[in-house]
Design a protein around this nucleic acid. Sequence first.
DNA 1: AATAGATAAATTGTCAACAATATGGCGTTT
DNA 2: AAACGCCATATTGTTGACAATTTATCTATT
Lengths: 229, 229
Amino acid sequence: MSNLISIKSATLSEDISQQLTNAIVQGYIPQGSKISEPELAKQYGVSRGPLREAIVKLEGLGLVTRTANVGARVIELNTQDMLDTFTMREALEGMAARLAASTMPSEEINSLYALLDKHQAYLDANQDEHYVQQGGNDDFHLRIIHASGNAKLIRLLTEELYAIIRMYRRHTADQRSDPRQALREHKAILDAIANHEGDLAELLMRRHISRASQLLKQAMEHSAVASRT
Amino acid sequence: MSNLISIKSATLSEDISQQLTNAIVQGYIPQGSKISEPELAKQYGVSRGPLREAIVKLEGLGLVTRTANVGARVIELNTQDMLDTFTMREALEGMAARLAASTMPSEEINSLYALLDKHQAYLDANQDEHYVQQGGNDDFHLRIIHASGNAKLIRLLTEELYAIIRMYRRHTADQRSDPRQALREHKAILDAIANHEGDLAELLMRRHISRASQLLKQAMEHSAVASRT
DNA sequence: AATAGATAAATTGTCAACAATATGGCGTTT
DNA sequence: AAACGCCATATTGTTGACAATTTATCTATT
């Protein structure tokens, strides 16, 4: 139940940085709340030095914003920020799918087919309940991203954008997408990659993400109307 | 002649951060060189605190790499890194062009046509000599990026990727592209945007950047062969 | 002579104190 | 009563000192 996950790193700063990142993404530290240096330093049992360093790192990751002489606050994700993030994701993951289509080794492709079979079996067994893809090696999108072989693209998507997305999902009604539909789309994307059809793979991946983005937009407009009553 | 550009910021840390960024991008601090905290602190006349903070920021921007208990080094850009960066640029600027096609106000479009006329006049007057587009408001690509209206995309492209690209250009034979060809492509992109043809604008922008990427690749292979003699 | 180990120097990581700035409360003034 | 300015408090920014780790130097051994 504790939000303190003990990860022994080489330096305190790295340690705190990871713990803070986790705390923010998981929502233990709510959006918009102030990051007090003395308070957190006491809480984590370190001095302000390494803690400040961690905050600067978080700023680089886009999880907090800092104002000189005032301090840091956790970002507040509004719908526009989220749609902007999805737009970038569409462009970058589309490109990742294209790259994967030309470089992905066949054994990795087979392994991904096996993963999709596993997802299929899960849906069959759990009557279409969403499987939680929390970033592990079982996440189809992450596998494609890594298959791109573009180190900078991998870092950006997995360390920055996905943190934001996961953070957002926590406080919104989970995506009301049809998991079987998503699985079909995943399969189509993988087929294109297996056939080394980069153009098609990119197109399908973009359409897939765009669809999720549209759902998000609708959900937001809906909840905005609902909260207005 | 000094590499010290005095920018009075709210905090020393911001100040140092900007100066270091500039020094690295401009090549005053060469690639691969070690960032010594005591040395730089003395050089800039500050204590190690704000200097460390600046280094952490630079790490977030991808300009230096840090190793625990060892220190920071300026990144060394190899051809692969550069091609990876161009690949991301292709995806993101392509998307920016698409977005611009649907949101760019007509007066801004006219202003961009005027800019291209200015470039044309420059080429006519200076017998096709490259105009240096060092990131000012006269850079066509930056104008398109800003017209996308996607804040996150703007920040990533202008603050991170472009810093890397400028850094790389400094120590390589400048792009041997045909400036008239580039100008023609810019015009075609702008035409597509003016006609609100997002698909076409994206396609043309990607082709434009891909072409530059190909030239870069050839130049690299060429110089690799040349240096082997 | 080359390698391995021990010691010394230098650098990074961390801390606690001080300075500068912003925030909140109080009283005064209009 | 509201607004302005002043003062006290708290927070951030910066500094110098100390601890921990790495790097360099020197000696000893094979």
